[in-house]
Design a protein around this nucleic acid. Structure first.
Ligand SMILES: [Mn+2]
Ligand SMILES: [Mn+2]
Ligand SMILES: [Zn+2]
Ligand SMILES: [Zn+2]
Lengths: 136, 136
DNA sequence: TAAACAATGCAATGCAATTGCAGGCGGCTT
DNA sequence: AAGCCGCCTGCAATTGCATTGCATTGTTTA
């Protein structure tokens, strides 16, 4: 199992340190997106700043993508196989008002939105809030 | 002119104080959404907290709607005539990476997104980032 | 007018994100 | 092996924005 994680890191040119392996293992094990505070709670002996930079590194290298769900704290989730986090790949995110969890909906692609003249789209973010399947 | 603004406030059951009229005049005069810092810069003699609460009041009463464009500071823009800020009314917002301005696109309605079973939508937010018409 | 209520100003706090800097650790060179 | 160097880590400190408490002032209403 850790072998797989190790390979995941290697593939993205991320040096597999102990902390990074643990962080990645945690993120992989979650069904929902995780925040820095989540990570901090999961590894209360680890330094918050190290975890912060771990997430930043993962994001820069394209291992995870960040989600701003409007709660004020950024969430992170594993990128799918072959995800470039480019505009075309972007999927919908869902925030449950009951369980407060943020979920990737890779099946729900963001439709192309017609823009006014001369407007050029580079990124897009679509967050739906409501009640998730487990909570309804 | 101020008469109109006064009526706008009255219609929404907002007491028209001097500060509120000035703030509303400023917001109305902008082509893009404004942040608390924008307001603060426009009225550097006014108290930041009063401006903050002015925006909050405007939002609660449905005079403006707030936009979280991912920059970390909330933007506010006038609600259109008859806008209920309800899910169905929600329009697309655009953030320009060059001029850093946030713009309402009332013509671009957010399409209905199919959700997994048992997921119930209550709110939705769609922010597109790129280059605006003036900057391209 | 007096009481009740709303708006304002100032201080302080909370919370998440971010940066600076020094020490540690491993790999690489000579 | 010893020394150098770059990356990773830990701790301190700071920023930035949002939010609240409280006393004061202004406005409405009985
Ligand atoms: Mn996602
Ligand atoms: Mn808008
Ligand atoms: Zn839920
Ligand atoms: Zn622009």
């Amino acid at each position: 199992m850790l072998k797989n994680l190790d390979k995941l890191l290697q593939d993205k040119n991320i040096r597999p340190t102990a902390m990074r392996l643990l962080a990645l293992e945690y993120i992989s094990s979650q069904q929902t997106a995780v925040s820095l505070s989540d990570l901090e709670a999961a590894f209360h002996r680890a330094d918050r700043i190290t975890l912060y930079r771990t997430l930043k590194t993962f994001e820069e290298k394209g291992l995870v993508h960040s989600i701003m769900d409007g709660t004020g704290s950024v969430k992170y989730a594993l990128c799918e196989e072959g995800c470039e986090c480019a505009p075309e790949d972007m999927h919908v995110h869902f925030f449950c008002n009951k369980c407060q969890e943020t979920i990737c909906l890779p099946k729900s692609r963001i439709p192309k939105i017609p823009l006014p003249d001369n407007f050029k789209q580079e990124e897009v973010s679509l967050v739906i809030k409501g009640t998730c399947g487990s909570c309804s």
